[in-house]
């Protein structure tokens, strides 16, 4: 079974797969943000409501990193 095809494309696809590991980092980041928010909120529930927006911003920042890796993956797959 002879493997034919573009070597560059193979590298790009492997790279895309590797780039997706970055999403794990984003997952860890979001977990940190929400976990810390919750532990703070349970200690002082009265202050929690005011910080929900901040939490979502934090989530968005952390998630953006995962999105960036997703974007890199897409770029590797499609934009050559």
């Amino acid at each position: 079974m002879a493997v034919t095809g573009d070597l560059v494309q193979m590298g790009a696809l492997i790279g895309a797969g590797l780039a997706c590991t970055g999403m794990g980092g984003a997952a860890i980041g979001i977990g940190h943000v929400v976990g810390n928010y919750l532990s703070g909120a349970l200690r002082n529930p009265s202050a929690a409501a005011g910080q929900t927006a901040t939490m979502f911003i934090g989530i968005a920042f952390a998630e953006a990193m995962g999105i960036f890796s997703f974007l890199i993956a897409l770029l590797l797959m499609y934009a050559q």
């Binding site: 079974m1 002879a2 493997v3 034919t4 095809g5 573009d6």
Partner: peptide
């Protein structure tokens, strides 16, 4: 498999 890839590429 190879032919599939070829096909896909095509």
């Amino acid at each position: 498999m190879a032919s599939d890839i070829e096909m896909a590429k095509a």
